[in-house]
Simulated assay, not measured.
Amino acid sequence: MKLLHRQIFLELCKLFGLTVSCLLGLILIGRMLQLRTLFLSQNIGFFNILQLFFFLTPFFLLLVMPISTMLSVFLTFLRMSTDNELTALKANGVSLYKMLPAPVAFCALCTLFTFFISFWGLAWGMDMFKVKLYEFARTHSKFSLQPGVFNKEFPGLTFYAHQVDNEKGILKFAFVRDQSTQGASVVVVAPEARIISSPKTAEVKIVFNRGKIFRQDGDELNVLKFNTYSVRLDLGELLGGFNFTEQKAKDMTFSRLSEIRRDPSKGPSQTPRFQRKVDTEYFKRLTLPLGCLILGMFAIPIAYVFRGLKQQYGLVLSMGLFLVYYSMFSIGVSMGEAGSIPPLYGMWAPNILYIFVAVVGIKFANEERTLPIVDWIAHLRGRLRRAEA
Protein backbone atom coordinates (compact mmCIF):
# COMPACT_ATOMS: atom_id res chain seq x y z
CA MET A 1 0.00 0.00 0.00
CA LYS A 2 2.88 2.36 0.71
CA LEU A 3 4.19 1.80 -2.81
CA LEU A 4 0.72 2.45 -4.26
CA HIS A 5 0.28 5.66 -2.26
CA ARG A 6 3.76 6.83 -3.25
CA GLN A 7 3.14 6.27 -6.95
CA ILE A 8 -0.24 8.02 -6.87
CA PHE A 9 1.24 10.95 -4.94
CA LEU A 10 4.17 11.32 -7.36
CA GLU A 11 1.86 11.28 -10.37
CA LEU A 12 -0.34 13.91 -8.72
CA CYS A 13 2.68 16.14 -8.11
CA LYS A 14 3.91 15.82 -11.72
CA LEU A 15 0.52 16.73 -13.16
CA PHE A 16 0.14 19.53 -10.65
CA GLY A 17 3.46 21.12 -11.63
CA LEU A 18 2.59 20.91 -15.31
CA THR A 19 -0.92 22.30 -14.78
CA VAL A 20 0.18 25.22 -12.59
CA SER A 21 2.96 26.17 -15.02
CA CYS A 22 0.65 26.15 -18.03
CA LEU A 23 -2.17 28.07 -16.36
CA LEU A 24 0.16 30.66 -14.84
CA GLY A 25 1.87 31.13 -18.20
CA LEU A 26 -1.44 31.70 -19.97
CA ILE A 27 -2.66 34.14 -17.32
CA LEU A 28 0.58 36.13 -17.25
CA ILE A 29 0.69 36.37 -21.05
CA GLY A 30 -2.93 37.55 -21.07
CA ARG A 31 -2.24 40.16 -18.40
CA MET A 32 0.90 41.28 -20.21
CA LEU A 33 -1.16 41.91 -23.34
CA GLN A 34 -3.60 43.96 -21.25
CA LEU A 35 -0.81 46.10 -19.79
CA ARG A 36 1.27 46.38 -22.95
CA THR A 37 0.22 50.00 -23.46
CA LEU A 38 1.37 50.90 -19.96
CA PHE A 39 4.76 49.22 -20.30
CA LEU A 40 5.49 50.07 -23.92
CA SER A 41 4.85 53.74 -23.22
CA GLN A 42 7.71 53.72 -20.71
CA ASN A 43 11.34 52.69 -20.87
CA ILE A 44 10.78 49.67 -18.61
CA GLY A 45 12.97 46.71 -19.58
CA PHE A 46 11.85 43.13 -20.18
CA PHE A 47 13.44 41.78 -17.00
CA ASN A 48 11.82 44.56 -15.01
CA ILE A 49 8.46 43.51 -16.42
CA LEU A 50 9.16 39.89 -15.41
CA GLN A 51 9.96 41.09 -11.92
CA LEU A 52 6.64 42.93 -11.75
CA PHE A 53 4.74 39.85 -12.87
CA PHE A 54 6.57 37.75 -10.28
CA PHE A 55 5.00 39.89 -7.57
CA LEU A 56 1.58 39.38 -9.19
CA THR A 57 2.02 35.60 -9.05
CA PRO A 58 0.45 35.16 -5.55
CA PHE A 59 -2.73 36.86 -6.77
CA PHE A 60 -2.97 34.49 -9.73
CA LEU A 61 -1.99 31.44 -7.68
CA LEU A 62 -4.95 32.00 -5.38
CA LEU A 63 -7.20 31.46 -8.40
CA VAL A 64 -5.13 28.77 -10.10
CA MET A 65 -4.50 26.44 -7.15
CA PRO A 66 -8.07 25.00 -6.85
CA ILE A 67 -8.39 24.12 -10.54
CA SER A 68 -4.81 22.78 -10.69
CA THR A 69 -5.52 20.49 -7.75
CA MET A 70 -8.76 19.31 -9.32
CA LEU A 71 -7.16 18.66 -12.72
CA SER A 72 -4.27 16.72 -11.17
CA VAL A 73 -6.57 14.39 -9.22
CA PHE A 74 -9.04 14.01 -12.08
CA LEU A 75 -6.45 13.19 -14.75
CA THR A 76 -4.59 10.79 -12.46
CA PHE A 77 -7.65 8.72 -11.60
CA LEU A 78 -9.01 8.99 -15.14
CA ARG A 79 -5.76 7.49 -16.48
CA MET A 80 -5.85 4.73 -13.86
CA SER A 81 -9.46 4.00 -14.79
CA THR A 82 -8.78 4.04 -18.55
CA ASP A 83 -5.77 1.71 -18.15
CA ASN A 84 -7.90 -0.64 -15.99
CA GLU A 85 -5.55 -0.15 -13.06
CA LEU A 86 -8.51 0.61 -10.79
CA THR A 87 -10.20 -2.59 -11.90
CA ALA A 88 -7.06 -4.60 -11.18
CA LEU A 89 -6.68 -3.02 -7.75
CA LYS A 90 -10.34 -3.68 -7.01
CA ALA A 91 -9.92 -7.34 -7.99
CA ASN A 92 -7.04 -7.63 -5.52
CA GLY A 93 -9.13 -6.30 -2.67
CA VAL A 94 -7.97 -2.65 -2.77
CA SER A 95 -11.05 -0.50 -2.39
CA LEU A 96 -11.29 3.16 -3.28
CA TYR A 97 -11.18 4.10 0.39
CA LYS A 98 -7.74 2.47 0.71
CA MET A 99 -6.46 4.65 -2.16
CA LEU A 100 -7.68 7.90 -0.63
CA PRO A 101 -4.69 8.70 1.68
CA ALA A 102 -2.49 9.81 -1.25
CA PRO A 103 -4.98 12.25 -2.89
CA VAL A 104 -6.16 13.48 0.53
CA ALA A 105 -2.56 14.24 1.59
CA PHE A 106 -1.88 15.92 -1.75
CA CYS A 107 -5.03 18.06 -1.56
CA ALA A 108 -4.28 18.94 2.07
CA LEU A 109 -0.78 20.19 1.14
CA CYS A 110 -2.23 22.27 -1.70
CA THR A 111 -4.82 23.68 0.70
CA LEU A 112 -2.19 24.67 3.29
CA PHE A 113 -0.05 26.34 0.63
CA THR A 114 -3.07 28.24 -0.70
CA PHE A 115 -3.95 29.36 2.84
CA PHE A 116 -0.41 30.76 3.15
CA ILE A 117 -0.88 32.70 -0.09
CA SER A 118 -4.34 33.86 0.99
CA PHE A 119 -3.29 35.09 4.44
CA TRP A 120 0.13 36.61 3.71
CA GLY A 121 1.46 36.07 0.18
CA LEU A 122 -1.23 38.02 -1.66
CA ALA A 123 -0.79 41.25 0.33
CA TRP A 124 3.03 40.94 0.14
CA GLY A 125 2.93 40.51 -3.62
CA MET A 126 0.64 43.49 -4.21
CA ASP A 127 2.71 45.74 -1.93
CA MET A 128 5.95 44.76 -3.67
CA PHE A 129 4.29 45.23 -7.07
CA LYS A 130 3.38 48.82 -6.21
CA VAL A 131 6.83 49.56 -4.75
CA LYS A 132 8.69 48.15 -7.77
CA LEU A 133 6.37 49.81 -10.26
CA TYR A 134 6.97 53.11 -8.49
CA GLU A 135 10.74 52.61 -8.58
CA PHE A 136 10.72 51.67 -12.24
CA ALA A 137 8.50 54.64 -13.10
CA ARG A 138 10.82 56.96 -11.20
CA THR A 139 14.13 55.64 -12.50
CA HIS A 140 13.40 54.00 -15.88
CA SER A 141 10.39 55.84 -17.28
CA LYS A 142 10.40 58.69 -19.74
CA PHE A 143 10.09 61.10 -16.84
CA SER A 144 13.72 60.46 -15.89
CA LEU A 145 15.15 63.90 -16.68
CA GLN A 146 18.00 64.13 -19.15
CA PRO A 147 20.28 67.14 -19.34
CA GLY A 148 19.34 69.63 -22.04
CA VAL A 149 16.11 67.80 -22.94
CA PHE A 150 12.58 69.19 -22.49
CA ASN A 151 10.27 66.76 -20.73
CA LYS A 152 6.51 67.03 -21.35
CA GLU A 153 5.28 63.71 -19.97
CA PHE A 154 2.96 65.33 -17.42
CA PRO A 155 0.00 67.20 -18.93
CA GLY A 156 0.45 70.97 -18.76
CA LEU A 157 3.99 70.76 -17.33
CA THR A 158 7.33 71.18 -19.08
CA PHE A 159 10.62 70.43 -17.27
CA TYR A 160 14.14 71.35 -18.24
CA ALA A 161 17.55 71.11 -16.55
CA HIS A 162 20.93 72.02 -18.00
CA GLN A 163 22.76 69.51 -15.78
CA VAL A 164 21.31 66.39 -14.10
CA ASP A 165 22.82 64.17 -11.41
CA ASN A 166 20.38 61.23 -11.24
CA GLU A 167 22.24 59.47 -8.41
CA LYS A 168 22.05 62.42 -6.04
CA GLY A 169 18.87 63.88 -7.54
CA ILE A 170 20.42 67.30 -8.13
CA LEU A 171 19.46 69.58 -11.02
CA LYS A 172 21.45 72.62 -12.18
CA PHE A 173 19.89 75.60 -13.98
CA ALA A 174 16.39 74.09 -13.92
CA PHE A 175 12.98 75.46 -14.74
CA VAL A 176 9.40 74.24 -15.00
CA ARG A 177 6.53 75.76 -16.99
CA ASP A 178 3.03 75.16 -15.68
CA GLN A 179 0.16 75.65 -18.16
CA SER A 180 -2.39 73.51 -16.34
CA THR A 181 -4.46 76.58 -15.42
CA GLN A 182 -6.42 77.94 -18.35
CA GLY A 183 -5.52 81.54 -19.24
CA ALA A 184 -2.43 81.62 -17.03
CA SER A 185 1.17 80.50 -17.37
CA VAL A 186 3.68 80.03 -14.55
CA VAL A 187 7.41 79.62 -15.06
CA VAL A 188 9.71 78.69 -12.18
CA VAL A 189 13.43 79.25 -12.68
CA ALA A 190 16.21 78.38 -10.22
CA PRO A 191 19.97 77.77 -10.38
CA GLU A 192 19.56 74.57 -8.39
CA ALA A 193 16.82 72.03 -7.62
CA ARG A 194 16.54 68.64 -5.93
CA ILE A 195 14.37 65.63 -6.69
CA ILE A 196 12.82 64.08 -3.56
CA SER A 197 10.91 60.81 -3.87
CA SER A 198 8.12 59.58 -1.61
CA PRO A 199 7.32 55.88 -2.27
CA LYS A 200 4.44 55.79 0.24
CA THR A 201 2.48 58.48 -1.58
CA ALA A 202 3.95 57.64 -5.03
CA GLU A 203 4.95 61.27 -5.49
CA VAL A 204 8.07 62.95 -6.80
CA LYS A 205 8.71 66.42 -5.45
CA ILE A 206 11.05 68.83 -7.25
CA VAL A 207 12.30 71.45 -4.80
CA PHE A 208 13.68 74.66 -6.38
CA ASN A 209 16.09 76.80 -4.31
CA ARG A 210 16.61 80.60 -4.50
CA GLY A 211 14.82 81.23 -7.75
CA LYS A 212 12.10 83.31 -9.35
CA ILE A 213 8.47 82.74 -10.35
CA PHE A 214 7.15 84.42 -13.48
CA ARG A 215 3.35 84.38 -13.60
CA GLN A 216 1.54 85.67 -16.67
CA ASP A 217 -2.21 86.17 -16.50
CA GLY A 218 -3.47 87.88 -19.65
CA ASP A 219 -1.38 91.02 -20.15
CA GLU A 220 -0.26 91.06 -16.53
CA LEU A 221 3.16 89.68 -15.56
CA ASN A 222 4.20 89.15 -11.93
CA VAL A 223 7.69 88.26 -10.76
CA LEU A 224 8.31 86.78 -7.32
CA LYS A 225 11.51 85.68 -5.60
CA PHE A 226 11.59 82.66 -3.30
CA ASN A 227 13.99 80.67 -1.17
CA THR A 228 12.20 77.30 -1.62
CA TYR A 229 9.47 76.26 -4.03
CA SER A 230 8.13 72.73 -4.56
CA VAL A 231 6.37 71.11 -7.49
CA ARG A 232 4.58 67.84 -6.67
CA LEU A 233 4.19 65.16 -9.33
CA ASP A 234 1.97 62.09 -9.15
CA LEU A 235 3.67 59.18 -10.90
CA GLY A 236 0.29 57.45 -11.17
CA GLU A 237 -0.61 59.97 -13.90
CA LEU A 238 2.55 58.99 -15.78
CA LEU A 239 1.39 55.34 -15.72
CA GLY A 240 -2.04 55.94 -17.16
CA GLY A 241 -3.83 56.86 -13.94
CA PHE A 242 -2.50 53.99 -11.80
CA ASN A 243 -3.44 54.61 -8.16
CA PHE A 244 -0.58 53.80 -5.78
CA THR A 245 -2.19 55.06 -2.59
CA GLU A 246 -5.69 53.56 -2.80
CA GLN A 247 -6.21 50.83 -0.20
CA LYS A 248 -8.31 48.04 -1.68
CA ALA A 249 -9.72 45.13 0.24
CA LYS A 250 -8.14 42.61 -2.14
CA ASP A 251 -4.65 44.02 -1.39
CA MET A 252 -4.92 43.69 2.41
CA THR A 253 -3.65 40.91 4.64
CA PHE A 254 -6.16 38.55 6.22
CA SER A 255 -5.43 39.99 9.68
CA ARG A 256 -6.10 43.50 8.37
CA LEU A 257 -9.44 42.37 6.92
CA SER A 258 -10.35 40.77 10.27
CA GLU A 259 -9.44 43.98 12.10
CA ILE A 260 -11.66 46.11 9.86
CA ARG A 261 -14.55 43.64 10.21
CA ARG A 262 -14.31 43.94 14.00
CA ASP A 263 -13.92 47.72 13.96
CA PRO A 264 -15.02 49.41 10.68
CA SER A 265 -13.60 52.74 11.88
CA LYS A 266 -10.05 51.39 11.35
CA GLY A 267 -10.62 51.02 7.61
CA PRO A 268 -9.72 53.63 4.98
CA SER A 269 -13.43 54.04 4.24
CA GLN A 270 -16.57 53.60 6.34
CA THR A 271 -19.02 53.37 3.45
CA PRO A 272 -21.36 50.34 3.40
CA ARG A 273 -20.03 49.30 -0.01
CA PHE A 274 -16.45 49.15 1.24
CA GLN A 275 -17.53 47.14 4.28
CA ARG A 276 -19.31 44.67 2.01
CA LYS A 277 -16.13 44.34 -0.06
CA VAL A 278 -14.14 43.64 3.11
CA ASP A 279 -16.63 40.96 4.20
CA THR A 280 -16.63 39.39 0.75
CA GLU A 281 -12.84 39.37 0.53
CA TYR A 282 -12.62 37.92 4.05
CA PHE A 283 -14.75 34.88 3.19
CA LYS A 284 -13.10 34.61 -0.22
CA ARG A 285 -9.73 34.15 1.47
CA LEU A 286 -11.22 31.27 3.50
CA THR A 287 -13.24 29.47 0.85
CA LEU A 288 -10.80 29.48 -2.09
CA PRO A 289 -8.05 27.55 -0.26
CA LEU A 290 -10.60 25.01 0.96
CA GLY A 291 -11.66 24.67 -2.67
CA CYS A 292 -8.41 22.77 -3.30
CA LEU A 293 -9.44 19.97 -0.92
CA ILE A 294 -13.10 20.00 -1.97
CA LEU A 295 -12.51 20.02 -5.72
CA GLY A 296 -9.78 17.42 -5.39
CA MET A 297 -12.16 15.04 -3.65
CA PHE A 298 -14.92 15.96 -6.10
CA ALA A 299 -12.68 14.92 -9.03
CA ILE A 300 -12.31 11.31 -7.84
CA PRO A 301 -15.93 10.13 -8.37
CA ILE A 302 -16.15 12.16 -11.59
CA ALA A 303 -13.14 10.23 -12.94
CA TYR A 304 -14.91 6.99 -11.96
CA VAL A 305 -18.15 7.99 -13.65
CA PHE A 306 -16.44 8.91 -16.94
CA ARG A 307 -14.06 5.95 -17.06
CA GLY A 308 -12.78 5.14 -20.52
CA LEU A 309 -12.92 8.80 -21.55
CA LYS A 310 -9.85 10.04 -23.43
CA GLN A 311 -7.65 12.44 -21.49
CA GLN A 312 -8.19 15.36 -23.85
CA TYR A 313 -11.94 15.05 -23.43
CA GLY A 314 -11.47 14.54 -19.72
CA LEU A 315 -9.52 17.78 -19.57
CA VAL A 316 -12.37 19.66 -21.27
CA LEU A 317 -14.90 18.02 -18.93
CA SER A 318 -12.99 18.92 -15.77
CA MET A 319 -12.52 22.50 -16.98
CA GLY A 320 -16.25 22.72 -17.57
CA LEU A 321 -17.03 21.44 -14.06
CA PHE A 322 -14.60 23.95 -12.58
CA LEU A 323 -16.20 26.68 -14.68
CA VAL A 324 -19.52 25.86 -13.01
CA TYR A 325 -17.84 26.12 -9.60
CA TYR A 326 -16.09 29.38 -10.43
CA SER A 327 -19.24 30.86 -11.98
CA MET A 328 -21.15 30.17 -8.76
CA PHE A 329 -18.26 31.66 -6.82
CA SER A 330 -18.12 34.80 -9.01
CA ILE A 331 -21.87 35.28 -8.69
CA GLY A 332 -21.51 35.00 -4.92
CA VAL A 333 -18.76 37.66 -4.97
CA SER A 334 -20.82 40.05 -7.10
CA MET A 335 -23.98 39.61 -5.07
CA GLY A 336 -22.06 39.90 -1.81
CA GLU A 337 -20.40 43.17 -2.83
CA ALA A 338 -23.73 44.51 -4.12
CA GLY A 339 -25.47 43.60 -0.86
CA SER A 340 -28.00 41.28 -2.54
CA ILE A 341 -27.08 38.40 -0.23
CA PRO A 342 -24.76 38.10 2.80
CA PRO A 343 -21.20 37.29 1.62
CA LEU A 344 -21.14 34.31 4.00
CA TYR A 345 -23.83 32.51 1.99
CA GLY A 346 -22.53 33.48 -1.43
CA MET A 347 -18.96 32.35 -0.70
CA TRP A 348 -19.78 29.04 0.98
CA ALA A 349 -22.58 27.87 -1.34
CA PRO A 350 -20.28 26.39 -4.08
CA ASN A 351 -18.13 24.57 -1.53
CA ILE A 352 -21.12 23.08 0.29
CA LEU A 353 -22.66 21.85 -2.96
CA TYR A 354 -19.42 20.28 -4.19
CA ILE A 355 -18.73 18.71 -0.78
CA PHE A 356 -22.10 16.98 -0.92
CA VAL A 357 -21.51 15.69 -4.46
CA ALA A 358 -17.97 14.54 -3.55
CA VAL A 359 -19.07 12.58 -0.46
CA VAL A 360 -22.01 10.91 -2.21
CA GLY A 361 -19.96 10.32 -5.38
CA ILE A 362 -17.06 8.63 -3.54
CA LYS A 363 -19.55 6.33 -1.76
CA PHE A 364 -21.18 5.34 -5.05
CA ALA A 365 -17.81 4.92 -6.81
CA ASN A 366 -16.52 2.62 -4.08
CA GLU A 367 -19.65 0.48 -4.49
CA GLU A 368 -19.22 0.43 -8.31
CA ARG A 369 -22.48 2.29 -8.71
CA THR A 370 -23.22 5.32 -10.85
CA LEU A 371 -24.99 8.43 -9.64
CA PRO A 372 -28.73 8.54 -10.38
CA ILE A 373 -28.30 11.64 -12.52
CA VAL A 374 -25.92 9.70 -14.81
CA ASP A 375 -28.54 6.96 -15.22
CA TRP A 376 -31.16 9.60 -16.00
CA ILE A 377 -28.94 11.17 -18.65
CA ALA A 378 -28.22 7.75 -20.23
CA HIS A 379 -31.93 6.90 -20.20
CA LEU A 380 -32.79 10.25 -21.81
CA ARG A 381 -30.18 9.74 -24.54
CA GLY A 382 -31.60 6.27 -25.27
CA ARG A 383 -35.09 7.65 -25.63
CA LEU A 384 -33.89 10.41 -27.96
CA ARG A 385 -32.07 7.88 -30.17
CA ARG A 386 -35.13 5.64 -30.37
CA ALA A 387 -37.29 8.64 -31.23
CA GLU A 388 -34.92 9.63 -34.05
CA ALA A 389 -34.96 6.07 -35.40
Rank of each mutant, 00 (worst) to 15 (best):
I8C: 09
L12D: 08
C13E: 03
C13S: 11
G17F: 06
T19E: 02
L26W: 12
I27R: 03
L28N: 12
L35G: 05
L35I: 10
L38A: 09
L40R: 14
N43D: 10
N43K: 15
I49Q: 11
I49Y: 06
I49P: 14
L50F: 15
L63W: 09
P66H: 13
L71R: 01
F74H: 10
T76N: 05
F77Q: 03
S81M: 10
E85R: 14
A91T: 13
N92I: 09
V94R: 04
K98M: 06
L100F: 03
F106M: 08
C110M: 07
L112C: 09
W124T: 08
G125H: 02
D127S: 15
M128T: 13
F129G: 05
Y134Q: 11
A137P: 02
R138Y: 04
R138Q: 07
H140F: 02
V149F: 02
P155V: 04
L157H: 08
L157Q: 07
F159C: 13
Y160L: 08
Y160W: 12
V164W: 05
D165T: 15
D178E: 09
V188F: 05
E192W: 11
A193W: 10
I196L: 09
V204T: 04
V204I: 15
V204C: 02
F208Q: 05
R210K: 14
G211I: 09
R215M: 03
D217K: 15
G218S: 08
E220S: 14
N222H: 14
T228C: 01
R232Y: 12
D234M: 10
L235T: 04
E237Y: 09
L238Q: 11
L239R: 10
N243A: 09
N243Q: 15
F244G: 05
F244D: 04
Q247F: 00
D251K: 01
T253Y: 06
S255W: 02
L257T: 01
E259I: 03
P264N: 07
K266W: 02
S269G: 05
P272Q: 08
Q275V: 03
Q275Y: 04
E281L: 01
Y282A: 00
P289I: 12
I294W: 04
G296K: 05
G308Y: 03
L315S: 04
L315G: 06
V316S: 04
L317R: 14
M319H: 05
L323K: 08
V324S: 04
F329N: 12
F329C: 11
S330T: 15
V333N: 00
M335P: 02
G336L: 07
E337A: 02
A338F: 05
G339Y: 00
S340L: 10
Y345M: 15
G346Q: 01
I352M: 06
V357P: 01
G361P: 01
G361I: 07
F364G: 03
N366A: 02
T370G: 04
L371T: 03
D375K: 13
D375W: 13
W376S: 06
H379Y: 10
R383P: 00
R383Q: 14
L384E: 02
E388V: 13
